[in-house]
Amino acid sequence: MQITSYIHPIRTYLPCTGVGKHINNMLLGLNNRDDISLELFFSQQWLTTNKQLNPLSPLSPLPFSTFPSAESTTERAWKLWGLPHMDRYIPTNTDWLYAPMETYLPVTKCPVAITLHDIQAFEPDLPWSHTWQHRLFAYRWGLWVRKALADCQVVFTVSEFSKQRMVDLLDANPDKIVTIGNGVDLSFFEIAKIAPADLNSIIDNPYIIIVGGLRQKKGADDVLAVARELYQRKSDLQIVIAGDSEASYVAAATEHPNVTLLGMVLDAELPQLLRCASSLLFLSPYEGFGIPALEAMAAGIPAVVSNRASLPEIVGDAGIVVDAVMTTAIVDILVDLDRIPKLREDYIQRGHRHVVTYTWTSCVERLVTAFNRFA
């Protein structure tokens, strides 16, 4: 099977977000299969001076073809007018044009499959749903998403939650939406074999790890409320935050002596950062999936997540699901996980049994099965 995959190369550069991890692992997995011939497809603006893909992308060794126009203006035209058709730029023997991310792709020579990781643009009840920024975002997505859902041969997503929201909010056909999920890199399982005492921790005190930065869309206000409560209780538990943070929350964090902002963390450093933590706290109000929760389980620490969107589905009974505004109850749980070895070990073992089913290999297998089914 010949697959041509459209990507935004910059999203694949390391370190990357959850969507970037999905793109990299799905395409590397496809490339490793004997029954698949894979070629990347992207704007030539991303080529380096030696006409190659930037080595910051793990996909840089893969074969590719390009189109000459700029990515942003070309995609805007695709989404507004369904033009220009891209048939002439993709290999003639392409069986599928596949995007492991959200876009609209106007071609006529082969079936098209895209990936919608979530549709938070259309959610009516998020804390930011009624801001002008979100309304503009929703308007722009509204210009093309329904058209993509109708025109694509198949639409992939990463959780049953996201699939159902496409049906509920956009009246999408559930029969053409396939949930393929996400996986966890082996490095997180490998680090779990090493005792935390044998690793160098970034701070002396025990800490709770937050992945995704201090941002409104990652539950920053609830995280800072937890930090405040811990400090008031004179707990030695610190809060360490990995990822880009919004400027207003960076300023707010300076008022909390038990909060450390690390900024972006290299992918190679994240497993050890998780392994040395007491627990993961993930109070995001909206996730299409929530990879950090599974990465924490794989690394051998308990995961405490909010009861919103896909997170209860993803962690199952292996995680601790909380109401993000119930600060006192959350702090009780975090303190107990650090102080009660039996409780902590119970959730570590639950997490281990749960997360072993989340492999990138199984995600790629579901993807290929869908290609064969919808061909």
Rank of each mutant, 00 (worst) to 15 (best):
V178P: 02
P124M: 04
S162F: 02
E313N: 00
D236E: 14
W132D: 13
V112P: 00
Y6K: 08
D171K: 13
L224P: 01
P196W: 05
G243A: 07
I119V: 11
Q120H: 14
P341A: 12
I7W: 03
T254H: 14
W128S: 05
I203S: 09
P84W: 08
H8E: 07
G213V: 06
L27V: 00
A370K: 04
Q164N: 15
G319C: 12
T49A: 14
N173S: 11
A70W: 12
L59E: 02
R140W: 13
I202R: 10
Q52R: 15
K147F: 05
Y358P: 01
D222L: 01
S57L: 02
D221H: 14
Y13M: 05
P111T: 06
I239C: 07
A253S: 15
K79A: 09
A150Q: 13
P106D: 02
A268N: 13
M297F: 09
G181Y: 00
S129R: 04
S235E: 12
V322L: 05
E255T: 10
W96A: 03
N32Q: 14
T327Q: 02
A298V: 07
V211Y: 03
D175F: 10
I191L: 04
T74M: 09
A77T: 10
I194C: 02
A197I: 09
D204A: 14
V145R: 00
I239K: 03
L97I: 06
A99P: 05
L294R: 00
Y286F: 15
P124H: 07
L337N: 11
V368H: 05
W141N: 15
K79T: 10
S43Y: 03
W360A: 00
L199S: 10
D317C: 05
L230P: 08
V145M: 08
T74I: 10
R344Y: 11
T94E: 03
K21Q: 13
I7Q: 01
F161N: 05
A121K: 08
E123W: 09
R344W: 08
I239F: 09
G183S: 03
P292K: 05
E102C: 08
T327S: 02
L224C: 07
R350H: 14
Y89R: 04
T359V: 04
G351Q: 03
Y358M: 01
T48D: 12
I301Q: 07
R353N: 14
V368T: 13
A113W: 00
V315H: 08
T179A: 02
K21P: 01
R275K: 12
L337Y: 12
R308I: 07
G82H: 02
K234W: 11
A309R: 00
V226Y: 03
K51R: 15
Y6M: 13
V167Q: 13
T92I: 13
V259D: 05
D222P: 01
H117L: 06
G142F: 11
